[in-house]
Amino acid sequence: MTALVEIDSLQKHFPVGGGLFGRGKKQVRALDGVSLSIEKGEILSVVGESGSGKTTLGRTVLRLTDPTAGAIRFEGQDITSLSRRALRPFRQRMQLVFQDPFASLNPRQTVEQIVATPLAIHAGGSSATEKRERVADMLRLVGLQPHHADRYPHELSGGQRQRVGIARALILNPSFLVADEPVSALDVSIQAQVVNLLLELKEKLGLTILFIAHDLAVVGHISDRIAVMYLGRVVEVAETGTLFRSPRHPYTEALFSAAPIPDPTVRRSRVLLQGDIPSPIDPPSGCAFRTRCRHALPECATVVPPLRQVGPGHLSACIRDDIALQASIA
């Protein structure tokens, strides 16, 4: 396996409030040193509560926001500080699918115009008929009918809109896709359609996907590996089955046990987390999770625990090796 995207100690701090000249400004540490590598052809999911920095991670990897520190390499090339012009060739190869299928489509454009936009930007040479054909092919590929081409987004259902968003992202044949909660705004009966579509397209087009989500059932189904984020840091990374069956970080244990199981006969004991995720402006010292952790020791407040290998392909950022954690599935 080779890495398609490598993320190295990525940091993104947003200034909040503060004076006119930026003195005494506070920082939101949305990303606080994230290192991940995304292998070619895999689906890597990022899970975590809101405020964990998972959306910021997706946007920063695509250079839609500029990182404060750290490095992003795409196919071995450092794209961390490329100018917008220099980034353009990369834009064809890395794309984004949004959570809200309504907000991400321009309400003034028809489906055809929306899906053709990437061609207008990047494939200047091809003729109008050629472009129309490619758009029609793409719409068929994502399961839309030809007559949808001249409809406006508001005339489509949520699921159809999301298909349009996927068509736009894939028409330039990218190798890397960031899918930011692509099903969570959809009706339940539509979610499975879109999950299947993403998996099918991934196989057909050889995509690598960074899948950002909070629905653990969907994540468990779709991903090869999962990274768990908490307050701007990755606390655990492992293959999907491993993470569900033998989590090594207390936060993973709590997060996964909070997911409701759609079976009324199963009553499992739940690790209930106390309180909310702390503010990323002023995160706790040491391990950021220690304030809500039932296994926390005094040492946890002093050192930021590094991500270290705890098994094959399994990384965890917890200093306690001596605790038995509850698996979310047997």
Binding site: L62, L64, Q95, F98, H122
Partner: peptide
């Protein structure tokens, strides 16, 4: 988001 989408396309 649709403005972000255009930016992500390199517009």
């Amino acid at each position: 988001d649709f403005a972000v989408a255009a930016e992500a396309l390199g517009a």
